[in-house]
Design a protein around this nucleic acid. Structure first.
Lengths: 243, 243
DNA sequence: CCACCTATTGAACGATCGTTCAGTCACTCC
DNA sequence: GGAGTGACTGAACGATCGTTCAATAGGTGG
């Protein structure tokens, strides 16, 4: 008998997304027509269009959404290293196989997560048209300081997804696209509030505000007093509404 | 014989840092006195105090530094998922065992990486005292736009380390401490340039500048034109030197 | 009742992970 | 020359990873 134990005891520090080094053949590149499980669902996965049949049995149904929620929670809490298919399954209270059934890939799961916060970002900058333009812009700018968005969980999630996007070409596209859409929405809000401004000046202001907002939520992760947050939001309003 | 291949082909997407769930006994909690290898080196690891004997054989020596460099490179490029002990060893051109010999833990390796960029941050804000105070501050503020620091590799590295700090309590302390030191240094520069300002106003300005700078490098990862960068740096100078 | 389809499970596979450890090499001091 | 020491190697271990797959349960339409 040799001697002491030599096994590894990995924690939240073990690799978690690799680029696939040449897929196995899988006959063709078509996505459908598999032997038994996983139907066309993989195609609809990321828009989450579920049948209108609402949850009658409290919260046992809609496992696909629960899986995505679990992944987001784990990602925010422990980073990508804490997101294994098994951990997601455990957190969501489903079996391991079901995660791969609904998402096929770990990469698709992460993609779905990215799209989720992309939706939130866009919603942030396209609010109700009931308000007048200037007030609409002001509300949008204040929204980033909303207690709903300034929680550690949400900010950390954004950070993790951003880091993931940097490391993965696939995710980077999604992230860049989302950022571009957000900035365009912001510029449109500014143009509506200050119609006599040249369009590229609006874009410039949107870019400057974007920088400050990004800095705001990143710095907020280390703890930022409310006064600092208010000052920076005021600065954003100044930039947007100047002239 | 069953059927098709079922192995997994992990890419840069597989977990990479876990919290250790109860260490094996290891006799006592002392760090020295191990049976054969790994001497007191583990204690000096993170300050990198190597004997003055400079590299005579071009670049074959100082493997410990090469290992750290390799880890930083991989982290920046592929995120924590791309940093396995084996990948680091391969990138550094050393054997697997040597990585653990010099760093004992994967966590120590990451810690060393965090301390490395902490040093760079502090150096950024404590420059030569040859200049007069105001110019010293201006130089420090401009430095963040230095082509040396605004490379994708460096920015991505910062992002990855920040994300790691969020996920790992151990690393978070290091990161928070570094940020605090940086902001204090910035406040000191401002106080020197504007001696009649109350100290807490200096701290406020330092905090505001910190937000913008953080936003600057984060946004720069998605591509930011030079004009935007200049505008934001000018804004930092305004904030710092106002009044 | 049977056929069909979808949602779900858990075992299994091969790969890779972090860590340990018995060595080897080069060098110094006695 | 031999003992000692520090740097270094690579095989091995146990754990965990992502993915596949046969099997099952539930529901619907014939």
């Amino acid at each position: 008998m040799p001697s002491v134990a030599t096994g590894c005891v990995p924690g939240y520090l073990t690799p978690a997304i690799t680029r696939t080094p040449a897929r196995p053949p899988r006959t063709a590149d078509a996505d459908d027509g598999r032997p038994h499980g996983r139907p066309a669902a993989a195609k609809v996965v990321e828009v989450s269009a579920r049948p209108a049949r609402a949850t009658d049995a409290d919260e046992k149904v809609d496992r696909q959404a629960r899986i995505l929620d679990a992944a987001l929670r784990l990602l925010s809490l422990h980073g990508i290293s804490g997101v294994s298919m098994r951990a997601v399954a455990r957190e969501a209270g489903v079996s391991l196989g079901l995660v791969n059934y609904h998402y096929e890939d770990k990469a698709s799961l992460i993609r779905a997560a990215l799209h989720r916060i992309e939706e939130q970002d866009i919603a942030l900058v396209e609010p109700d048209p009931a308000l007048e333009p200037e007030e609409r812009l002001r509300v949008a700018l204040k929204r980033v300081a909303d207690p709903e968005f300034l929680t550690t969980e949400y900010l950390s999630l954004r950070l993790q997804l951003w880091a993931l996007a940097q490391a993965h070409e696939d995710f980077e596209r999604i992230n860049t696209e989302a950022q571009k859409r957000y900035r365009a929405g912001l510029a449109a809000l500014i143009r509506a509030a200050r119609p006599d401004l040249p369009p590229d000046e609006c874009s410039r202001r949107a870019a400057d505000i974007d920088v400050i907002q990004n800095g705001l939520w990143l710095t907020a992760l280390l703890g930022l007093d409310h006064a600092s947050i208010s000052r920076n939001i005021a600065r954003c309003e100044e930039i947007a509404l100047a002239g």
